[in-house]
Computed example of a mutant assay.
Amino acid sequence: MSGDLPEYYFRIRENGAAVFKVDTENRQRRIEMEEIAIANVRNGNIKPHGDRKLTAEETAVITDWIARRSAILTARDVDDIHRAVDHLNLVTQWAQSKASDAQLEDVTDALLLAMHDLRSVLVRKKAERLMSAEPTDD
């Protein structure tokens, strides 16, 4: 089993991960994990743990992890939006076919304001994209 373990373990945190070096080559043949750094996905910073100096290999492994983690989080954000679109469709179907007057009264204002806010942002962003894509006449 110990041969299958990765050399580094990343304990996910809010903004990144605590990075551990995994050691199975010890006398007791136990798994030991030494914290070596904190990796921040938002700004790409790598902060060594304590007085430790990171090797070039450790820094490269952590930098690679940050890039892969950022890609995963970006993909999740887009997937969440696609799920939100599905959920909006389900809400529409609910409002049309199942909702009582009391239920609609409870949620209508909040939904209308949220949808108005979203529409305003989407229209503004679309206009900005269209304006930046137009060739300029100089």
Rank of each mutant, 00 (worst) to 15 (best):
N40R: 05
R42P: 03
N43L: 00
N43R: 01
N43T: 00
N45F: 08
N45Q: 11
I46M: 00
K47M: 10
K47W: 02
K47A: 14
K47G: 05
P48V: 06
G50W: 09
D51Q: 12
D51W: 05
R52A: 05
L54H: 01
L54T: 01
L54S: 05
A56M: 10
E58L: 03
T59E: 14
T59P: 10
T59N: 12
A60K: 06
V61N: 09
I62W: 00
I62G: 02
T63W: 04
D64M: 01
D64R: 13
D64W: 04
W65P: 04
W65M: 02
I66A: 01
A67C: 07
R68G: 02
R69V: 00
R69M: 04
A71L: 10
A71I: 03
I72P: 07
A75M: 06
V78G: 04
V78Q: 10
V78T: 14
V78M: 12
D79Y: 10
D80P: 05
I81R: 10
I81W: 04
H82R: 12
R83V: 01
R83L: 08
A84N: 09
V85W: 02
D86Q: 05
L90S: 05
L90G: 04
V91M: 04
V91G: 07
T92I: 13
T92Q: 13
Q93L: 09
A95C: 15
A95T: 10
Q96G: 07
S97Y: 12
K98Y: 13
A99Q: 03
A99M: 00
S100H: 04
A102Q: 13
Q103G: 07
L104F: 06
E105A: 15
D106H: 08
V107F: 02
T108I: 15
T108R: 14
T108F: 08
D109V: 08
A110D: 02
A110G: 10
A110M: 09
L112Q: 08
A114G: 02
D117Q: 06
L118N: 06
V121I: 10
V121L: 09
L122T: 11
V123M: 09
E128A: 06
R129G: 10
L130K: 09
L130I: 11
L130G: 03
M131D: 15
M131E: 14
S132F: 11
E134C: 12
P135V: 13
T136F: 14
D137C: 03
D137H: 09
